[in-house]
Amino acid sequence: MRRNGPLALVFHAVFVTVMVAPILVVCLVAFTPEGYLSLPTNGFSLRWFRTIANYPEFIHAFWISLGLGALSSFVALLFAVPAALAIARYRFRGRDALAALFLSPLMIPHVVLGIAFLRFFTSFGLGGSFAALIIAHVVIVFPFALRLTLAAAIGMDLSVEMAAVSLGAGGWTLFRRVTLPLILPGVISGWALAFIQSFDDLTMTVFLAAPGTETLPVRMFLYIQDNIDPLVTSVSACVIAITMTALILLDRFYGLDRVLAGKGDPGR
């Protein structure tokens, strides 16, 4: 009875096509053998992927993005895991306000964050530095790290920890041997989602990056502003491939629906 009618299926087909087409086009054009933007009608070629090698600024930007994403997500977790445990375990005054504050980077437009960080870091002489990028990214990926860790901490069976305490575990041992292993899936997923957010961020980073600390999205954006050629499609295809890999890992580890459920908030 609960079947979709033919009209619904046509709508669905058109919808999915329109959703996928722009992404698919980028990936296809990346394989063109021609020197201009075109679909690879006569044979696939890796020509434009090889061309990336002639543009060290793209390679450099890629490493910056990778390092920035990995490091800022990790640092964010160092702050987020204790905070998540506190919010999950204790009922204390100011708990709700604190949670709202920690999730607030989702609500603030990233342009505003970019401007605020630019103003802040230049007044300390840190403008355009990698350190500034790390700190800024820690703040914007923090909510994602916190969310998934919090979900894991709330879902954790407290009696397991009590059992460990009754057996004599305490403090750091308790955390390292019992608590952390139990919330680890949430922590790893939090890291992965945070990494993707950092890796993809353009709006905030475009304000902070200087030549030498440009991330890949920033580099691509600046390049597109001047001209659009097959080179940026091959770079984009690489970015898409990396995100997809992280996505699939995330799906395996945690279930993508659960991860994305936490994304239904103002962000970016």
Partner: peptide, 12 residues
């Protein structure tokens, strides 16, 4: 696509 770079999506 939510997790794919906005730059890449708009480029399309």
């Amino acid at each position: 696509p939510l997790l794919i770079s906005v730059v890449a999506r708009t480029l399309g």
